[in-house]
Write a protein that binds this DNA or RNA. Structure first.
Lengths: 133, 133
DNA sequence: CTGACTGCAAACGTTTTGCACGGTA
DNA sequence: TACCGTGCAAAACGTTTGCAGTCAG
């Protein structure tokens, strides 16, 4: 928390209560849609605006504090930026979990037949989570 | 072409000129946004409606003829359904190419520590394509 | 104290819907 | 011929913008 206050200031962004609560909600919940984030923040600020959520999400994406995760057949979720990882998405309950798996071999495509310089790998594994099995 | 006419009928969908042109455009172009698809179809049908495009895209997704590909920082593209594969997206020119690479090892996650039954793997590699290097 | 941020309302772009007409089977 | 599909217009949705008041630094 204090952590993100400093991070915000380091990027010349004011550490408003709304912004701190956004990072907090993501820290606790891991992955959130705009909708759920709004619901959560409404409990803390009874008159927070969706516009504020959008403005801050976009600002924080630009500053690389958070990232959007696009998911097949579902709304995007947002998460705090951490080391590169993939995602497990449950087709039943919609839960999203991180999967830390080494995809660096994928970055060496330029050495093989396909001539493409890979900068980033986004992988989503869809299936059934532990609880839903 | 005749191919898709049959496929449509097999699914109790009428093989209208608009639908045939959609499959045709995807067959020729590989990956298209709604926007580009609309532009292409406008040249064949000077009064085609965006509503028609959307209705048909959704219908054909439901019938598994085509698939949506969600791309980081860009609009979704649509492609004809074929065997599972990944995508190479150029960050400079925006081009999308198929990459046929074996990801079946990813499906065996349930055998390891992570208990998750993987049904589908969606991977997008972002970087710089051959032409843009 | 001052510029940045919030919340509201309006605007915007994209996607969906309802309906009358037209075309496929 | 019967019904499905098209095109139009309007509506619904998610997101962005402009602005006046407020707050963090």
């Amino acid at each position: 928390m204090e952590n993100y206050t400093e991070m915000l200031r380091a990027h010349h962004l004011k550490a408003t209560p709304q912004r701190i609560e956004i990072t907090n909600a993501l820290l606790i919940n891991g992955h959130l849609t705009i909708e759920k984030l709004y619901d959560i923040l409404l409990k803390k600020f009874n008159s927070i605006s969706l516009a504020t959520i959008y403005k801050n999400i976009n600002l924080m994406i630009e500053n690389a504090f958070i990232q959007e995760v696009k998911i097949p057949n579902a709304k995007s979720v947002y998460e705090l930026t951490k080391e590169a990882h993939s995602h497990l998405v449950c087709e039943k309950c919609g839960s999203v979990e991180d999967l830390h798996i080494d995809l660096s071999p994928m970055k060496k495509l330029n050495l093989s037949k396909v001539d493409f310089q890979v900068n980033k790998v986004d992988m989503v594994l869809s299936g059934i989570c532990k609880n839903c099995q």
